[in-house]
Write a protein that binds this DNA or RNA. Structure first.
Lengths: 347, 347
DNA sequence: GTTAGCACTCTATCTCTTTGAGTGCTAAAC
DNA sequence: GTTTAGCACTCAAAGAGATAGAGTGCTAAC
């Protein structure tokens, strides 16, 4: 496995990614930087095929990279150029929300931007809210026997939920109960707000507070929401413009998005590329997904991924993904100890 | 244009909808309820073609309904059976949320259910929040110089927004300002919360209240949100399973969803069917959209639509749509004077 | 080790033919 | 006057060769 063979493998991958057609020896040989004849290339290609890096759709066609070929290319051969400053600025500006930048908006913008830049689908699995801390609990009367509980976290999430009680509360009751909640919940990590803990909270309430149990229930549901991985997608439609992917498989994939979580939440560091073979249950055949983690401090709190055809310009996409996940890490790690800045919370 | 010709037209539409193939005279003649020979059917079909209700893809093929043919069928010929009670119950159960039933959840469930039932895309344009009334405004401190404004409407929407001030407020200031907002906003219709009115509100504030202008700004943004038509989709993916529709046009359509608003918000009563011809800018060629209004009291507050192939089982879909829009009308009109029941509001 | 030359393979494309569903028209039957 | 059977005609879709061309593997020369 000499230098030239690797160069040829890289050239085949790049040509195939560029054109979508099987690549012949002649095309490779005429590429700048190769400098050997088609016959030589042919010999090397035959070798690369034996080694499992290339394959032929049929005898008299050119070569196409195998999954192993792509893998070798991605891990060893490709040389993604460093992002020029202008490009970094462009990416940064895509991250900036048209409004105050919350963690959630940030990763949402990153997903949209990735989908846009790569013309692929982008996905993010975010479980950062789980790692923030309750900074405020509030109970607000909102009509006859209806009360809104409002939860604010250090990550900047603001969630509310309306609950119906059996009776109206006096101001005194409301005050006492609010105070009780604040004392017991503020400063507590969202990850620790288990159903069990909430049940204990209810159990510890005095008899006359029991009428307020639905409010605790409401908080319980909000915290369940916060602890859940939020899965966000963007650019699914781009997949349909992609010749290489089966439309029906895309539809099936979109229907079963949730199953992606398994792949996204595996822990690893750096970049991971998963290739979709048609026999996989829910992944799109002939597709690939590139995933990168982002962190909050030292803790992995989410995954950012790009899903596209296997025939993907990895050397272009991977730097984008790396840049975004690093940027998200920087931004949310930096902000994590601050109180929420501005924050929007829609129905 | 005698009885029999109409019967034949209806039969052609129904057969074509069922099979997707152009319908020949023989197939029609052998249908129960026709009872004339293929030759007779042929004569009638030739007539129907002349009148513009049928057309032939080519000389030696069967007939296919034209848009006018569909229109006549929908308006005069089809006889949708009344929904049996069992079916009504099934539909009702699809409307029930897995949680407390808010207006928003209700119409969301209706969209999902419609998409599911019809295997088409379903869309809803909802502007009911615009017609509700502010029932509560609250300002909640949420950290250093950060305050959350919370708006609750009679329709049950709960919206919040975090704002950053230049200074922290004293309890007294907060109280005064809250009181000022309540006095000026509670009971006011969302439709009346124009930017202008909000500007007046700011203008009327005493000098020392001016530091709180960002909070008014926050309310302004929330109200802008509420006044906007919410467009919700479900089942877009179903369109891709549809042979008759061009995949690229579907993608284009999904990208330009917003333009649908024009079609959905036209005022009309009852059911309207819009046929998509390929020369229309953004509608999918060969598609049709069936739209029905729902009301809150006497006021139209939203449209519910089904988008599918022109070759659609109208006799099945239209009753569903009618039932759902009536049901929504009943439910939101009935609830409209009550305070919000339970209500969830997520980030 | 590299390259030119050549026979070979296999798909994609084109043309030509066949098939069959469906038509319109005519003349007979009702 | 309306309906029907019969028949010639049309046209798309499917199949069968035939052809072209890109690309290969192998061999022999450099």
């Amino acid at each position: 496995m000499n230098e030239r063979k690797l160069k040829i493998l890289a050239a085949v991958v790049e040509e195939y990614v560029r054109t979508g057609e099987p690549v012949g020896s002649k095309a490779i040989s005429s590429l700048p930087g190769i400098g050997v004849s088609a016959a030589t290339v042919r010999n090397d290609m035959a070798m690369l095929e034996q080694l499992g890096y290339l394959e032929q759709p049929h005898t008299s066609a050119g070569r196409v990279p195998t999954i192993n070929g792509y893998r070798l290319y991605i891990e060893e051969l490709m040389r993604p150029p460093a992002l020029p400053d202008a490009e970094r600025e462009r990416l940064d500006s895509m991250l900036e929300a048209q409004g105050p930048l919350t963690e959630e908006l940030l990763i949402q913008n990153a997903t949209t931007a990735l989908a846009e830049l790569t013309q692929c689908a982008a996905v993010v699995s975010d479980f950062s809210p789980k790692f923030s801390v309750i900074s405020k609990v509030e109970v607000i009367p909102a009509g006859r026997r209806v009360y809104v509980v409002l939860l604010i976290t250090s990550g900047g999430s603001i969630k509310n939920k309306a609950c119906r009680l059996e009776f109206d509360l006096t101001n005194e009751q409301l005050g006492q109960f609010s105070e009780y909640l604040s004392r017991n919940l503020e400063g507590v990590s969202v990850a620790d707000l288990s159903d069990e803990r909430m049940a204990n909270l209810t159990a510890a309430m005095s008899a006359y507070m029991m009428t307020m149990a639905p409010l605790v229930q409401g908080i319980c549901e909000i915290s369940r929401d916060l602890r859940q991985h939020a899965l966000m997608f963007s650019g699914e439609k781009n997949l349909f413009s992609c010749e290489d992917l089966d439309k029906m498989e895309i539809v099936r994939f979109i229907e079963h998005k949730d199953e992606l979580v398994k792949l996204l939440d595996d822990s690893f560091s750096g970049i991971r590329v998963v290739f979709g073979e048609s026999n996989d249950s829910f992944v799109i055949g002939n597709s690939s997904m590139i995933v990168s983690k982002y962190r909050k401090g030292e803790q992995n709190v989410g995954s950012l991924g790009v899903i596209g055809p296997m025939r993907l310009d990895y050397a272009k996409v991977i730097p984008y993904l790396e840049y975004f996940s690093q940027k998200i890490t920087d931004l949310i790690s930096g902000e994590s100890t601050e109180p929420p800045s501005e924050q929007q919370d829609d129905v």
